[in-house]
Write a protein that binds this DNA or RNA. Sequence first.
DNA 1: CCTAGGTCGATCGTATACTATTTCAGATAT
DNA 2: ATATCTGAAATAGTATACGATCGACCTAGG
Lengths: 221, 221
Amino acid sequence: MTASVGINKSERAYLEIKSKITDGSFGPGYRLVLGQIANELQVSVVPVREAIRRLEAEGLVTFTANVGAQVVATDAREYQYTMETLSLVEGMATAMAAPNVTPGDLVLARSINVEMRECLEHFDPKRFTELNHEFHAVIFEHCSNLHILDLVHRGWNRLATIRESTFAFVPGRAQRSVEEHDHILDLIEAKAPALEIEIAARSHRLATLHEYLEYQKSQQS
Amino acid sequence: MTASVGINKSERAYLEIKSKITDGSFGPGYRLVLGQIANELQVSVVPVREAIRRLEAEGLVTFTANVGAQVVATDAREYQYTMETLSLVEGMATAMAAPNVTPGDLVLARSINVEMRECLEHFDPKRFTELNHEFHAVIFEHCSNLHILDLVHRGWNRLATIRESTFAFVPGRAQRSVEEHDHILDLIEAKAPALEIEIAARSHRLATLHEYLEYQKSQQS
DNA sequence: CCTAGGTCGATCGTATACTATTTCAGATAT
DNA sequence: ATATCTGAAATAGTATACGATCGACCTAGG
């Protein structure tokens, strides 16, 4: 009853492994061996196994029967799938949330966006990414459909595991991003039609993807 | 190497429990007790536990720490969430699939739709539901984004567990449904813009939901 | 009569031990 | 030289056993 702030060992294992994936300790393709991880975490294999199956369900690792799990390979195609999916669900979540967004939320969102602009000047990409998540969360957390909201969370979750490793910045994208944020807030404030808000939020995310793909292509040639 | 066509016990338990949920043996709210199910399936609790956690990840059961799992309560709200989510992902999947749909697929889809019309005359709702799934699958299976396709499968999956139990037919809906099917096929054949196809497919599903909600309201008063 | 606290049974959570499967190295045959 | 077989090591899969936790009931005190 002292140190064990956590809940149960399965949960702890889950969080532990997940953070090792997101921070890059377990890179793409890394093989997750039950016994090995169990030793590191000082628990038996049973909770570890459960944690890994959970990560599988979330798409962070792939699992093969009688062989084991490995961290999902985050190639460009995976990145594209994830961004497209997130654009879809986040767009809808934003649109569904719009009627429930309070004036206070809008003020908060705008202030976050101001801080993001400051990050651009100081060139603080890590903080920028955090704020970006906060910004969108302020809005989409009001989404009334809990299933869709869950999918949004999973999308961000997955993105966090990918971004750190491979997918860096596209020059100028951040600047345009904050401008699009303001536009989305304007639409919400003006109580624009749901579909218009949805398309705006969707395009906002897809723009990041497309600019990334363009940039990659230009670098290759 | 004889009878055990299945893979491993965990997988068998998963399929077994899932089918019992979908066919109604384990109705909404039914409490899934590890030991009890383990006995029925003649396995130990470990694979059963894993199977249940998997079902939890798919949203078919809810799980509470140290208490256990129970079949998710499929109230009207859940139904609405599921249908809205499916309308979203299926709409996009249909639009993304459209360019990859071959003339042969269109012929097949139209023939399925013809058979659905026949079901209307003979009043064969079970077969109608099957064909409905087939119809949509012929199209959305060509969706190039595997994440979105996976979400579509999960949505249908979930719907299967709900529909059987509570949510019956709305008079006249089936008739309109097959007409909308033809419209969607027309759009695909005419190579309509992706957004147009998406909205059509989305509306098609949402119409089922809205007519259901209307019908419920009218029955109450 | 109502509430606080304690006991007990049911069930979950996890460790340990054993079994099944896969994989790879090395040997043998073609 | 290549292919196939054989066996051992590594690791996943499962069973059993025990400890931990929760919820219901029951008792004591107000």
